[in-house]
Simulated assay, not measured.
Amino acid sequence: MITMIAAAGEKNELGKDNGLLWHLPDDFKRFKEMTTSHYIIMGRKTFESFPKPLPNRTHLVITRNKTYAKPGAVVVHSMAEALQISENDSQPFIIGGGEIYKMGLPIADKIELTRVHGTFNDADTFFPEFSKEDWRLISEVEHDKDERHKFSFTYETWVRKEWV
C-alpha cells in the first residue's frame, strides 16, 4: 500500500521557501509514529529541509541531478525507481514536496492528510487537488487549537475507491 502523507491548509497550501507554514507538534508526532521503520519517498528540496535525516526511516530522494549524493539518502531519479527499491515495505510513504505528491497521486492507495484549518496566502507549494469521486474519506479526527497549536486541524484518511 503506497501512502501519501501531508499537512495542507484549506486551499491545499503546503509551505513556503521550503519550510512549513505552521508548527503542529501533535502532527509531527503522528507523522513519526506512522513513518518510522518505513521507506519515505521525497524530493531533494524536502530532504534538504531536514536538519538531519529522520531516524529509523530509509530516505529515498528523487532528483534529476545524476551526481547528487548526501549521507543518509538513497538517491533515485524516478518514482518508479523509488517504488522498486521500497517494494518489500508493506507501506512506503510519499512525504513531498509538491511535485513529488503530483507524481504520487496516480499511484497512491491512501492519503493521510492533516487538514490545517486556515488559509496561507504566502504559500508557494501546494498539495495536488484530488477527486472526491476517486477517493473515499474513511476517518476524520479533529484537533482543536490549544497552547501548543496555533491552528485547529483534522486528521483525514482517504482511500482510493477502487480498493474499498
Score class of each variant (00 low, 15 high):
Met1Pro: 05
Thr3Gln: 09
Met4Leu: 15
Ala7Glu: 00
Ala8Leu: 07
Glu10Gly: 12
Glu10Lys: 15
Lys11Cys: 10
Lys11Leu: 14
Asn12Ser: 12
Asn12Trp: 09
Asn12Tyr: 06
Lys16Phe: 02
Lys16Glu: 08
Asn18Cys: 11
Gly19Glu: 11
Leu20Met: 15
Leu20Gly: 04
Leu20Tyr: 00
Leu21Tyr: 03
Trp22Leu: 09
Leu24Asp: 00
Pro25Lys: 07
Asp26Leu: 12
Lys29Asn: 12
Lys29Ala: 15
Arg30Val: 05
Phe31Glu: 09
Phe31Tyr: 10
Glu33Thr: 14
Met34Cys: 09
Met34Ser: 11
Thr35Tyr: 02
Thr35Ala: 03
His38Leu: 12
Tyr39Val: 04
Ile40Leu: 11
Ile40Cys: 07
Ile41Tyr: 00
Ile41Asn: 01
Gly43Ser: 14
Glu48Ala: 12
Phe50Asp: 09
Pro51Gln: 04
Lys52Pro: 02
Pro53Cys: 09
Pro55Asp: 07
Thr58Glu: 10
Thr58Met: 12
His59Phe: 04
Ile62Glu: 02
Ile62Lys: 06
Asn65Gly: 08
Thr67Gly: 10
Ala69Glu: 14
Lys70Glu: 15
Lys70Thr: 07
Pro71Leu: 14
Ala73Arg: 06
Val76Ala: 01
Leu83Ala: 08
Gln84Pro: 05
Asp89Met: 04
Ser90Pro: 10
Pro92Thr: 03
Phe93Leu: 12
Ile94Asp: 04
Ile95Pro: 01
Ile95Gly: 00
Gly96Ile: 02
Gly98Asn: 01
Gly98Leu: 00
Gly98Val: 01
Glu99Leu: 11
Glu99Pro: 03
Ile100Trp: 05
Tyr101Asp: 00
Gly104Cys: 06
Leu105Ala: 04
Pro106Leu: 06
Lys110Glu: 13
Ile111Asp: 00
Glu112Cys: 14
Leu113Ala: 03
Arg115His: 10
Val116Cys: 06
Val116Leu: 08
His117Ile: 14
Gly118Lys: 08
Gly118Leu: 09
Thr119Gln: 13
Phe120Ser: 06
Asn121Cys: 01
Asp124Val: 01
Asp124His: 05
Thr125Tyr: 01
Thr125Cys: 14
Phe126Asp: 01
Phe127His: 07
Phe127Trp: 11
Pro128Cys: 11
Lys132Pro: 07
Glu133Ala: 14
Ile138Val: 15
Ser139Arg: 12
Glu140Asp: 12
Glu142Cys: 08
His143Thr: 02
His143Asn: 11
Asp144Ser: 14
Asp144Val: 06
Lys145Ser: 05
Asp146Met: 09
Glu147Pro: 01
Arg148Phe: 04
His149Phe: 03
Lys150Ile: 10
Lys150Gly: 02
Lys150Phe: 04
Phe151Ala: 01
Thr154Trp: 06
Thr154Cys: 09
Thr157Lys: 12
Trp158Gly: 09
Trp158Ala: 09
Arg160Cys: 06
Arg160Asp: 05
Lys161Ile: 09
Lys161Pro: 06
Glu162Lys: 15
Val164Leu: 15
Val164Tyr: 04
